[in-house]
């Protein structure tokens, strides 16, 4: 069966005049699911506008919000408020406490860490263990591979290799995203998968990281957001009358 590819982190602005062109380009590259993340709670019009543009170019839009919580309470409040409104919730972990809380909370879909500040990449053994018990996946943006050079890129690759080894050990799903804020950082899905060979993923694992793993998250959450969902594995088939 033909793979469906997803890029869950196309970081272009919703107000960008080139939004349609960028999404068209993503469609030409062969992506089926694209997520242009919101950084704050969007209005219904904004969501509808994005959906219309995506559908006009033949892409399935994935509603995603990026959370930058100040502390654990802020994270919990945001999750409580936003979980039922979005297909994907990604937490950018700025501190160890936040990353630990995000990893163990089953409402969090993706964990993302600062790309350049290596002191703040908190994906260690404990984090991986917590994430493996929850539903959180580790998201890796490939954009830094294009913008960094020399020792900075070497250090970045070294960090990623360590994190991926831990993720594999503990069975944490991996998601490879472009993290592109400009068209020149966008790559075809298989090219994006090939970039992950640099940090130790095999061919199948790399392809799953741009297709099966992100799709599993999106489909799982969409199922939960349906009105017929009761609990995992249980859904309302038919409602009887009360009379």
């Amino acid at each position: 069966m033909k793979r469906a590819f997803a890029d869950l982190h196309l970081k272009i602005s919703q107000k960008d005049t080139n939004l349609q062109r960028t999404l068209q380009r993503a469609a030409n590259f062969g992506y089926t699911y694209i997520s242009v993340p919101f950084s704050s709670e969007p209005s219904t019009e904004e969501i509808e506008k994005l959906s219309t543009v995506c559908k006009s170019v033949g892409i399935e839009p994935v509603l995603r919000i990026d959370l930058y919580p100040r502390n654990e309470n802020d994270l919990m409040n945001n999750l409580r408020r936003l979980r039922r409104k979005f297909d994907v919730i990604c937490v950018f972990c700025g501190s160890k406490d936040i990353s630990r809380q995000a990893a163990k909370d089953r409402r969090v879909d993706l964990l993302n860490f600062p790309n350049v500040d290596y002191q703040k990449r908190f994906f260690d053994r404990s984090e991986a263990e917590l994430a493996s018990n929850g539903f959180a996946a580790l998201e890796i943006d490939v954009k830094p591979l294009f913008v960094l050079d020399g020792p900075a890129r070497i250090r970045f690759l070294s960090c990623l290799r360590r994190e991926i080894m831990l993720a594999k050990t503990f069975g944490v799903p991996l998601i490879i995203s472009s993290g592109a804020n400009e068209e020149r950082f966008m790559r075809m899905p298989r090219d994006m998968a090939s970039l992950s060979y640099l940090f130790g993923l095999g061919v199948n694992e790399a392809l799953n990281a741009v297709s099966a793993n992100p799709l599993a998250i999106v489909l799982r959450n969409r199922e939960k957001l349906k009105s017929t969902f009761i609990a995992p594995g249980i859904r309302l088939v038919k409602a009887g009358s009360t009379s």
């Binding site: 294009f146 020149r184 790559r187 075809m188 298989r190 090219d191 994006m192 090939s194 970039l195 640099l198």
Partner: peptide, 23 residues
């Protein structure tokens, strides 16, 4: 092959001009 493919995907410019290479 995988190494070459990765290296091609990492190209960001040719002769001082911005460029992207797709396989």
């Amino acid at each position: 092959l995988d190494s070459v493919r990765t290296s091609l995907a990492c190209i960001t410019g040719i002769a001082g001009k911005g460029a992207v290479v797709h396989v």
